[in-house]
């Protein structure tokens, strides 16, 4: 690691002012991506601003129709919660036990790794990202490879999810890293069905063609009728774009099947 100044502010205001005063600052939440990156010397921030000391950012609140998950809530805590079982199930599939004990929802979402799990739920569930500046609709949040709607210095404070009628997450993990090669989150909200896909594109996206088919008939066999263009999907040594296309279908079928 290169040298940096470590800060552990006690409030969001303090965090923001540290960031404003830093040459090239970075926020640290769980550190599951940032710290390995720093260890590899692939980033050289002047200041690391640890959000771990801001108690208000942690915890899950059940608001009735929605739940609010504080940005610094660890994956393990979400996995152990029960307000939205599919979300808990998703959180329980992230990384490994140690990653889940440190990694946070806010950090994961702000990072927008194309293979992260949470984004599938954020786009599929009716969700809102609350930040120090504003509220952003979940559907507008992810904008590309590691790109989000967040502005420089803006901090996610919580993620609010509307409770679905029912939902399920099916993931095909990368055999080595346990990231999602593909993950599909299917959420039913009354008559509507939303399908969020992670791992396949530069960031999580809604599979609207499948949503339309599922509106006609909510069954696993509907997946076969939904168009899916995999030509621009991600590809690596574990899965070609074509195989990812297949996995998106298979995971969608399995998620839908588990809800029927």
């Amino acid at each position: 690691m290169y040298q940096f100044n470590y800060h552990r502010p006690a409030s969001l205001d303090e965090a923001a002012s540290l960031m404003a005063g830093a040459d090239d600052g970075t926020y640290l939440s769980g550190g599951m991506t940032l710290i390995p990156t720093l260890k590899q010397r692939l980033a050289a921030p002047s200041d690391v601003i640890d959000l771990g000391g801001i108690g208000a950012l942690s915890g899950i609140t059940d608001n009735g129709n929605t739940i609010s998950v504080g940005a610094m809530t660890r994956h393990a805590e979400v996995a152990a919660s029960n307000a939205i079982p599919a979300l808990a199930d998703l959180a329980g599939q992230i990384g490994d036990a140690h990653v889940r004990n440190r990694g946070t929802i806010g950090g994961s979402i702000a990072n927008s790794d194309p293979a992260a799990d949470y984004p599938a739920a954020v786009v599929a569930l009716d969700s809102t990202i609350h930040t120090t500046e504003r509220s952003i609709a979940g559907g507008d949040f992810f904008q590309g490879l590691f790109e989000t709607a967040l502005d420089e210095g803006e901090i996610i404070t919580s993620v609010e999810f509307t409770k679905p009628t029912s939902a399920a997450y099916a993931k095909f993990p990368n055999p080595a890293s346990r990231y999602a090669v593909v993950g599909v989150f299917v959420a039913r909200c009354g008559d509507a069905t939303c399908v969020g896909v992670t791992g396949a594109g530069p960031c999580a996206f809604r599979w609207s063609e499948l949503e339309a088919e599922l509106a006609k008939s909510f069954s696993a066999s509907a997946v076969a009728n939904a168009a899916l263009d995999h030509s621009e999907f991600n590809a690596d040594i574990h899965a070609s774009a074509e195989f990812r296309g297949n996995l998106v279908r298979v995971m969608a079928e399995r998620a839908v099947a588990s809800l029927t």
Binding site: P175, A176, S177, D236, I237, H238
Partner: peptide, 23 residues
């Protein structure tokens, strides 16, 4: 079933960490 040391055509080891080399 799992392990594979993969070099790309330019000789870079692209399975060079536990992120990609499946233990």
């Amino acid at each position: 079933l799992l392990e594979h040391g993969v070099y790309d055509e330019t000789g870079q080891l692209v399975s060079g960490s536990y992120m990609d080399y499946t233990m």
